[in-house]
Design a protein around this nucleic acid. Structure first.
Length: 289
DNA sequence: CACCAGGCAAGCC
DNA sequence: GGCTTGCATGGT
């Protein structure tokens, strides 16, 4: 991987196992959108960014070497060898196909608090609507970020949301999830849920702690472990994963627990990566429907 | 109209 | 403990 500045843009070359479409469409994040020119624009970690890929060249517009090193390099998980992971996972025909199909997936290292709220919103919902709810939440209670002559909105911090009541979230149309968002905000703002403490725990301990939040059950907690806490063994089982695993590895319908246990045995420490390849493959290819 | 969407909490037994 | 049901909203 090489980087160089050209004007205010940073150009990265020599990236392997990296594809923006795979990264942004595999269901792990909700604030990146493709623009008419094929670039993606998004907000993460309090910053806006436009990013575009052609082949193995990726351009980060209007940024700095410092932000790349301190923010985006970690966010995009650029220091992990995905070639090794893909090789280890491609042990049967199904996984070979899934890994080949979403070969550019990277598991983003996202902000914990934002991940908690985003996946509370994801419960019994669909991705376009999740994105809409989150955008309205940010526009209403986030702060303005000026970038490239446009205004974007940061993800609102927990203190801001902790002062609200569920009714104050009516405009974002989150439905029954509004009270869960407020509960999460109050726990984070009061220190009842403490990020440093959670980060000091192993996956099992962190999950138990997260599930104290109203609206965070087993599945949402697994998403938070994987996307917000770098516990890459976590294997969230949603309807899509359940469906494709039943289709590929079971003889018809089974339980969520059976799928989880099977995945733990089969993928072990690489469960999270396997889950992302399978999720992207199932959704894009409509396998197992 | 019914059914579903990256589930969860509360109420049953 | 496991199982069932209601839950807001929007799309098909």
């Amino acid at each position: 991987m090489n980087t160089q500045m050209t004007g205010k843009d940073l150009v990265v070359t020599g990236l392997r196992d990296f594809d923006l479409k795979h990264i942004f469409d595999c269901g792990q994040c909700f604030r990146w959108n493709m623009d008419s020119d094929g670039s993606y624009i998004g907000v993460a970690l309090g910053r806006a960014l436009r990013i575009k890929q052609s082949g193995d060249t990726v351009t980060l517009y209007d940024t700095s070497e410092k932000d790349f090193q301190n923010i985006w390099r970690g966010y995009f998980d650029l220091d992990r060898d995905y070639g090794e992971i893909k090789k280890a996972l491609a042990a049967d025909d199904i996984m070979r196909a899934a890994v080949s199909y979403g070969g550019g997936i990277r598991i983003l290292n996202q902000d914990l608090w934002e991940t908690v709220v985003s996946f509370i919103i994801s419960a019994s919902n669909n991705i376009p609507r999740i994105k809409g709810i989150i955008e309205r939440l940010c526009a209403l209670y986030g702060s303005e970020i000026e970038y490239g002559g446009e205004i974007y909105y940061s993800f609102p911090d927990c203190e801001t949301l902790a002062r609200l009541k569920a009714e104050d979230l009516a405009p974002i149309r989150a439905g029954f999830r509004d009270k869960y968002i407020i509960d999460a905000a109050r726990r984070f703002a009061s220190g009842d849920i403490d990020e440093k403490y959670i980060r000091s725990l192993d996956a099992e301990g962190a999950k138990k702690e997260l599930m104290r939040i109203n609206g965070v059950g087993n599945k949402v907690a697994n998403c938070i472990l994987l996307f917000g806490l770098s516990h890459t063994e976590a294997f969230p089982v949603d309807v899509w994963i359940k469906r494709i695993m039943e289709y590929c590895y079971f003889d018809g319908e089974t339980s969520i627990n059976a799928v989880s246990e099977f995945a733990e045995k089969k993928f072990g420490a690489l469960g999270g990566f396997a889950q992302q390849y399978l999720f992207f493959y199932a959704r894009e290819e409509k396998i197992g429907l």
